[in-house]
Amino acid sequence: MNKLAFFNLKGGVGKTTSAVNIAWHAAQDGIPTLLWDLDPQGAASWLLHRKAKSKSEPKKVLAGKTAIGELVKATDYPNLDIIPADFSFREFDVLLSDITDKQNAVDKLLAPFSERYALIILDCPPSFSTLSEQIFDTADVLYMPLIPTHLSLRTFEQTRDFFKQHKLKPKRLRPFFNMVDRRRSLHRVMISHPPKMLKNGLQSTIPYAAVVERMGDFQAPLGSFAENTPVAQAYANLWQEIKADFP
């Protein structure tokens, strides 16, 4: 079972839309995929038109009183299921901090899914915390969407430094440029001459496109309603690169 995560400290960089679109492409390839929405905002859940149970109660899940499998919901797409988030997930990090068992709780919760899914995708909350540290430790690869700007690059640098400080492997960080607007000179320069810190980055770039916002209108992945658009094709290319990272 491969475990991937999408993360960025900065909001509005396309983290969730990337996670949803890549999960859809994986499912379309016939790969049994589970998307776990760990962001209390629940954007991925909303885009796939699924709600968490009225009270998902992370405390009961972590205590083993509620099986995490009970939180899984099927989506409208074959091979793609989701664990939806709700606002109660804001408690997740505090609950993890209170656990005396030093075992990685996120990894432990995911372990039983290996019999059912070939791919787990984690949509992460935008913060450094106990939860994010466990996600970083659990994921085989961490994908970071970056807008080609200096502030966005700084979030990558901060994440890379966090990995080093916590003895994680920075090579598992795989950045890619998202929301690229080639009318902007800075975007063009960064795409053509990526900073050295991004040497492990993906080649695929995702263009800025208004049609991405229509994912909210349809509550659906791009490929399901706009597969012939350049941005949908860009996500298809990104998926091929990500799939090539699988062992």
Rank of each mutant, 00 (worst) to 15 (best):
K51H: 14
A52V: 04
S54H: 10
S56A: 14
S56N: 14
E57L: 08
P58C: 00
L62K: 04
L62I: 03
A63P: 05
A63N: 13
A63M: 08
G64Y: 02
T66W: 00
T66Y: 02
A67V: 00
I68L: 13
G69R: 01
L71G: 02
D76I: 02
D76P: 00
L80D: 03
I82E: 04
I82K: 10
R90Q: 15
R90M: 10
E91M: 13
F92T: 10
D93L: 08
D93M: 06
L95Y: 03
D98K: 13
I99D: 14
D101C: 04
D101P: 06
D101G: 03
K102S: 13
K102A: 14
K102T: 14
A105V: 03
V106C: 03
V106W: 09
D107P: 02
D107L: 02
L109T: 05
L110R: 07
P112H: 01
F113Y: 11
S114A: 11
S114Q: 09
R116W: 00
Y117H: 10
Y117I: 08
I120A: 07
I121N: 11
I121P: 08
D123Y: 05
C124T: 06
C124M: 09
P125K: 06
P126D: 12
S127M: 07
S127E: 15
S127V: 08
F128S: 12
T130G: 09
L131V: 08
S132K: 10
S132T: 15
S132R: 06
S132I: 14
E133R: 15
A139T: 11
Y143F: 14
M144H: 06
I147P: 02
I147M: 13
T149M: 07
H150E: 15
S152K: 01
S152Y: 03
